[in-house]
């Protein structure tokens, strides 16, 4: 069943200000962002933003369409959780005396996390997993005392060979029609002179 949480994936132009445009849009329209993660992609000049929003399905629809209106957003899709791989990474610094290390490592092993830093009073645990798994680990670590923590926010990709749809250009037929009725074909400049 659809929760009230939607994962929106957007390919955006890697330009100054693009994050500002997106966050400004969310603020202005009152969309509730739960997390937002940005990173590079296989294509130079294009970044992927994974945005988790809360709200009814009608909000997800608006989020997608309003994002799509931004010129710097190349394509957007709302990912279906069942058909996507969704992950999040957390670093958790837990209070840990040397005599507690064994016990904490056992917990971390169960979740297939790893310890990436150790001091006499703390350890840092790293886990990449779905959000629910992360939450479960955090609950198990809470009794030891969580000193600080950071999560990346969710990132996601559709399962299987499908990729985020790329821009579709005007068909030849559309182009002819545009010309027939005196409209600008795509890419043509307005009242362009030689």
């Amino acid at each position: 069943m659809s929760t009230n949480r939607h994962t929106v994936s957007a390919l955006v132009e890697d330009r100054p200000g693009v994050l500002n445009r997106v966050s400004s849009l969310f603020r202005r329209r009152g969309f509730n962002i739960e997390s937002l993660a940005v990173g590079t992609t296989e294509e130079p000049g294009i970044s992927r933003m994974t945005i988790v929003v809360e709200g009814p399905p009608s909000i997800a629809d608006q989020v997608q369409k309003q994002l799509d209106k931004l010129i710097d957003v190349v394509t957007v899709e709302t990912l279906n959780e069942d058909e996507s791989v969704v992950r999040e990474l957390a670093l958790i610094k837990v209070a840990c005396r040397p005599d507690q290390r064994r016990e904490i490592l056992d917990v971390v092993d169960i979740f297939r996390g790893s310890v990436v830093d150790v001091s006499t009073t703390t350890v840092i645990i790293q886990l990449t997993a779905a959000a629910d798994t992360l939450n479960a680990l955090i609950e198990n670590l809470r009794p030891y005392g969580i000193r600080e923590m950071v999560r990346t926010g969710r990132i996601a990709l559709a399962r299987g060979p499908r990729t985020t749809a790329t821009h579709q250009h005007e068909t030849e037929e559309e182009r002819r029609f545009h010309q027939e009725i005196g409209r600008l074909p795509e890419g043509e400049l307005p009242f362009s002179s030689k």
Binding site: V12, E13, L70, I71, D72, V73, V74, T75, H167, Q168, E170, L184, E186, G187, E188, L189
Partner: peptide, 9 residues
């Protein structure tokens, strides 16, 4: 010619 990927008319 102008091409703005991410903009469709």
């Amino acid at each position: 010619h102008v091409s703005v990927r991410g903009y469709r008319i």
